[in-house]
């Protein structure tokens, strides 16, 4: 369980990235932080593995304040997946995946062996093992990023817009894979995105954020969709526009009358 207690982050120039955040991300669930740029979502994520230190307040993992933990050890115990995968350009696929286990003292040989198994789990062909990141497609790079995040078998996985830079078809594919993996692995995942559709597709719980790092509303996708708290949430969800659907015979149509689906 990840818990933010009154966590704030302000910068020297006075900008408030996160203000008084109180938030709990339950174990074995996907919690999605969603908001447009400037809402502090990446800053929140980075507070968990101490890439960012809160100006005030605390972040706790299973009731232990992360500030009390050695930052390097802490980071090795938490999976981190970022946009553009953040792969090391001078390491092959298999060595990129093996990075954290090797840092934790596993022998290179064992770490590589395990990395090959992980490649299979995230749906990468073994023939990719010796390739460098630039030799992979965007979608493959993200799969490597996910495999690397999982390599040390962490309880927690932080994902910072991991599928933001790939095309929509690949993104949908990666989202499905993530849900499949999560059903097997049951990690505690904190997932950041600016895409509300992605948040709804993945989140057990969604946290909608406003500028300055304040929570507009949080809850399950169904809860939020059923009763948006205010106009901001309504418009963020698109309930005043594209997602304001009605039924026309057997068809589900959008406000302009275009069909978006059919009642099953």
């Amino acid at each position: 369980m990840i818990e933010f207690r009154n966590a704030s982050k302000s910068y020297d120039d006075g900008t408030l990235a996160v203000s008084d955040l109180d938030l709990t991300a339950a174990s074995h669930e996907i919690t999605v932080l969603v908001g447009s740029s400037g809402c502090g979502k990446t800053t929140m994520l980075r507070m968990v593995n101490r890439l960012v230190t809160p100006t005030s307040g605390q972040v706790l993992i299973d009731d232990v304040d992360v500030a009390d933990r050695n930052p390097v050890e802490l980071r090795r115990s938490i999976g981190y997946v970022m946009q553009n995968s953040g792969l090391l350009p001078h390491r092959t696929t298999v060595d990129n995946i093996a990075t954290v286990p090797v840092l934790r003292g596993t022998s290179v040989r064992d770490a590589r062996k395990h990395a090959l198994e992980l490649m299979e789990i995230v749906g990468l062909d073994r023939s990719m093992a010796r390739r460098y990141p630039w030799q992979l497609s965007g979608g493959q790079q993200q799969r490597v990023g996910v495999a690397r995040g999982l390599a040390a078998d962490p309880n927690i996985l932080l994902m910072d817009e991991p599928f933001g830079a790939v095309d929509p078809i690949v993104r949908a594919d990666l989202q499905r894979e993530l849900l499949r993996l999560q059903a097997e692995l049951g990690k505690t995942i904190l997932f950041v995105t600016h895409d509300i559709a992605e948040a709804i597709a993945l989140g057990d719980k969604i946290v909608i954020l406003m500028k300055g790092g304040r929570i507009a509303q949080q809850g399950s996708p169904a809860e939020i969709m059923a009763s948006p708290k205010d106009d901001f949430v309504t418009s963020f969800l698109g309930l005043d526009g594209a997602r304001s659907l009605h039924v026309d015979g057997h068809l589900v149509v959008d406000p302009s009358g275009r069909p978006v689906g059919r009642l099953a």
Partner: peptide, 8 residues
């Protein structure tokens, strides 16, 4: 940053 986040 990615390297730092990995725990280097």
């Amino acid at each position: 940053l990615a390297a730092t986040a990995m725990g280097y």
